[in-house]
Deep mutational scan, measured.
Amino acid sequence: MEVRTIKVFTTVDNINLHTQVVDMSMTYGQQFGPTYLDGADVTKIKPHNSHEGKTFYVLPNDDTLRVEAFEYYHTTDPSFLGRYMSALNHTKKWKYPQVNGLTSIKWADNNCYLATALLTLQQIELKFNPPALQDAYYRARAGEAANFCALILAYCNKTVGELGDVRETMSYLFQHANLDSCKRVLNVVCKTCGQQQTTLKGVEAVMYMGTLSYEQFKKGVQIPCTCGKQATKYLVQQESPFVMMSAPPAQYELKHGTFTCASEYTGNYQCGHYKHITSKETLYCIDGALLTKSSEYKGPITDVFYKENSYTTTIK
């Protein structure tokens, strides 16, 4: 009895394709271990004539594949690729409408935090270190965002349907971005203890939790000093293409032309909904596939993004 075979390709990165001759009487799992086709788990399936010449994702289970996976995804987590594939199996079914010149995501599976993050990423200057993220990001900007969303979920250790947080998501993504040249110098002034300067680099240099107003941050924000008295913390120097200011959701007025974009969060910790506000020729609110415009805006804002380049204080 002759062994019926077909020729397929296996890959971990969709760049390096490895030619395989597979036995049609055995499952993919018996031949390769966990195997995925377009995100779908085909591990328990036997090869079919229609699979001839198709590319299958496999887990990096030998040295060659491990090197290829690390170079593309910059992670050695053995569960990463499987999590990416199972997320992709959902995100490829989502709709990605162009809204006001940006790629958004039609609401499904509690994905409003991903839509808000995706919209924000198209408006701030950011370059990702893992080629996987950078490639998928370019495709997302062009309207094909399924891979990018699935990668975000995998890097953030999230599953489809789980509630997510924009600030946490951005923080994970910033860790995989090139923020080497970003720098922030802060000064804390206390009447009792004097003053202390701190220099922050990388992710810490672009994120701040405690106030939404970048102007206020430049002037000074009140913080408790270690001595128990009130101290003032203010920005001395900022070198970065953008800054992200966050605070627990509270009524906040966004003035046209003073910011790049913002995240609105309605609801409580267990259950809520994100919308995205962007400042173009007027203010726009993007909620999944829905767009509304207004000249002014007041609502429960939790993150505001500002364009920056270089700032030095005039406070002496």
Rank of each mutant, 00 (worst) to 15 (best):
E2G: 10
E2P: 11
V3R: 13
R4P: 12
R4S: 13
V8W: 04
V8L: 10
T10S: 12
T10A: 11
N14Q: 15
N16D: 06
L17R: 08
L17H: 14
H18S: 09
Q20A: 15
Q20W: 09
V22H: 05
D23H: 13
M24R: 12
M24Y: 09
Y28H: 05
Q31D: 07
Q31I: 15
F32S: 08
F32N: 08
F32Y: 08
F32T: 15
D38L: 12
D41Y: 08
V42L: 13
K44I: 13
K44G: 10
H48C: 13
H48R: 11
N49A: 11
N49T: 12
H51R: 05
E52F: 12
G53N: 15
G53Q: 12
G53C: 11
F56M: 13
F56C: 08
F56V: 11
Y57P: 04
V58Q: 07
V58D: 04
L59A: 11
L59V: 08
P60I: 08
P60G: 10
P60M: 07
N61G: 13
L65M: 08
V67I: 15
E68F: 06
E68T: 11
A69M: 09
E71N: 15
E71H: 08
Y72A: 12
Y72I: 08
Y73W: 05
T75Y: 06
T75K: 08
P78Y: 11
P78I: 12
P78N: 10
L81W: 07
L81C: 08
G82Q: 15
G82S: 14
G82V: 13
R83F: 06
R83M: 07
Y84F: 13
S86Y: 08
S86V: 12
A87H: 06
N89W: 10
N89A: 11
N89I: 06
H90L: 14
T91G: 04
T91E: 02
K92Q: 08
K93P: 04
W94M: 04
Y96S: 02
V99R: 07
V99W: 15
G101P: 03
G101R: 06
G101K: 06
L102C: 05
T103S: 05
S104N: 03
S104Q: 05
I105G: 04
K106E: 06
K106I: 08
K106Y: 10
A108C: 12
N110C: 04
N111G: 03
C112N: 01
Y113G: 02
L114A: 00
T116S: 15
A117R: 03
A117D: 03
L118A: 04
L119E: 02
L121P: 03
Q123C: 06
L126W: 02
Q134N: 12
D135E: 11
Y138E: 12
R139Q: 14
R139L: 11
R141N: 13
A142V: 12
E144M: 09
A145G: 13
A145W: 06
N147G: 09
N147L: 06
F148N: 01
C149H: 02
A150Q: 02
L151W: 03
I152C: 10
L153C: 07
L153A: 04
C156F: 03
C156K: 05
N157K: 14
K158L: 04
T159D: 11
T159K: 15
V160N: 04
E162G: 05
E162H: 05
G164E: 00
E168T: 15
E168W: 07
T169R: 03
M170S: 02
S171L: 12
L173H: 00
L173P: 01
A177V: 08
A177I: 05
N178K: 15
N178L: 05
N178P: 04
D180S: 12
S181V: 08
S181E: 15
S181W: 15
C182D: 02
C182Y: 07
V185H: 04
V188M: 08
V188W: 07
C190K: 02
K191Q: 15
K191V: 15
T192I: 08
T192P: 04
G194A: 04
Q196L: 11
Q196A: 12
Q196D: 10
Q196P: 02
T198L: 11
T198E: 15
T199P: 04
L200W: 06
K201E: 14
V203R: 13
V203P: 15
A205T: 04
M207S: 07
G210A: 03
G210D: 01
S213N: 13
Y214L: 11
E215S: 11
E215G: 06
F217T: 05
K218Q: 07
V221K: 05
Q222C: 10
I223C: 13
P224W: 13
P224D: 13
C225G: 02
C225V: 00
C227E: 02
G228V: 01
A231L: 04
K233A: 13
Y234A: 07
L235N: 01
V236M: 14
Q238G: 00
Q238E: 01
Q238L: 01
P241C: 06
P241Q: 14
V243M: 05
M244R: 05
A247M: 07
A247Q: 06
A247K: 04
P249E: 00
A250I: 15
Q251I: 14
E253Y: 08
K255R: 14
K255P: 05
H256C: 13
T260K: 04
A262M: 01
S263T: 07
E264D: 06
E264R: 00
N268H: 09
N268A: 10
H273Q: 02
Y274S: 01
Y274E: 00
K275N: 02
H276L: 05
H276K: 00
S279G: 06
S279H: 04
S279V: 05
E281L: 02
T282S: 14
L283R: 01
Y284W: 11
Y284R: 01
Y284K: 01
Y284S: 07
G288P: 00
G288M: 02
G288E: 02
A289Q: 10
S294T: 14
E296M: 06
G299C: 01
D303M: 00
V304M: 05
V304E: 00
F305R: 00
Y306K: 01
K307V: 07
K307I: 11
E308I: 12
E308L: 14
N309V: 11
S310Q: 09
S310D: 14
T314G: 14
K316V: 14
K316G: 09
